[in-house]
């Protein structure tokens, strides 16, 4: 759990710094900031996908392993 927390914190810092460097300043009195919003949403989405893969990594490995194993077995002549 501690390792996971550390990974999440690292992700936060790297993604946060990356976005902070790229975000634009408001151009109008009340600027909706669509460009920054979309970019942040996409990056946060990518982080989410990354975390999801990380969480399911054991299951993914097992599934892929099973798939290849099944293929190998089916290729073996009976």
């Amino acid at each position: 759990m501690k390792r996971e927390t550390k990974i999440i914190m690292n992700i936060f810092c790297i993604a946060g710094l990356f976005i902070l460097c790229l975000t634009n300043e408001a151009k109008a009195y009340m600027d909706p900031g669509t460009g920054s919003f979309v970019m942040q949403a996409l990056l946060a989405g990518l982080v989410g996908i990354g975390v999801f893969i990380k969480m399911c990594w054991t299951n993914i490995k097992l599934t892929i392993g099973r798939l290849f194993k099944g293929k190998e077995n089916s290729n073996t002549p009976s």
Binding site: F12, Q40, A44, G48
Partner: peptide
């Protein structure tokens, strides 16, 4: 995690 990251930024 996703909105926390966004709010953090």
């Amino acid at each position: 995690i996703i909105p926390s990251l966004l709010i953090f930024i």
